[in-house]
Simulated assay, not measured.
Amino acid sequence: MNQSILFPDLQDWEQSSQMVVFPAQQQGMNIECRIGIAKLAALSGTILNATDQDIAIKALAVFETYRFDIEEEVEQLIEQELLDELGRIIVT
């Protein structure tokens, strides 16, 4: 694992975009990272329904379970400089 990219233990659910938002830090710079429920569902092999009132709890639980895999993918995207127009990493 590349030690120049760090992942603080911070994540939050953003209801409006249906994504878990979490930071990465590279050489002191914060990079906003996002992963949507479709990708979380694919990783976990479960159905995550956006209309479920407990979606935030479920999505964050899946994120935590697959955190290492997600961080590894994000690391590769950062190293390839595949940031969007707002400087974020979006895992799709």
Score class of each variant (00 low, 15 high):
E14A: 03
E14C: 00
E14W: 00
E14R: 06
E14P: 00
Q15P: 04
S16N: 07
S16A: 04
S17A: 03
Q18L: 04
Q18E: 07
V20A: 01
V21C: 00
V21Y: 01
V21N: 03
F22I: 03
P23Y: 04
A24H: 07
A24V: 13
Q25F: 01
Q25D: 02
Q26I: 05
Q26M: 05
Q27S: 09
Q27T: 01
I31R: 14
E32F: 05
E32D: 00
E32Q: 01
C33S: 10
C33I: 04
C33M: 07
R34L: 03
R34K: 05
I35L: 00
G36Y: 01
G36C: 02
G36W: 06
I37R: 01
I37L: 07
I37V: 10
I37C: 01
I37W: 04
K39D: 10
K39R: 09
K39Y: 09
K39W: 07
L40G: 05
A41S: 11
A41W: 01
A42S: 11
A42E: 09
L43E: 14
S44C: 06
S44G: 15
G45Y: 12
T46H: 10
T46V: 03
T46L: 13
T46W: 10
T46I: 03
L48D: 07
N49E: 14
N49W: 05
N49I: 12
A50M: 09
T51K: 14
T51C: 11
D52W: 08
D52C: 11
D52H: 13
D54T: 12
D54K: 15
I55F: 13
I55M: 13
A56S: 13
I57F: 13
I57N: 12
K58F: 06
A59P: 08
A59T: 04
A59F: 09
A61R: 10
V62S: 12
V62H: 14
F63R: 04
F63L: 03
F63N: 09
F63D: 14
E64D: 13
E64K: 11
E64T: 11
T65L: 10
T65I: 03
T65G: 09
T65K: 13
T65H: 13
R67C: 14
R67H: 15
F68Y: 15
F68G: 08
F68C: 10
D69M: 11
I70Y: 12
E72H: 08
E72G: 09
E72L: 06
E72I: 05
E73F: 12
E73S: 08
E73V: 08
V74K: 12
V74S: 01
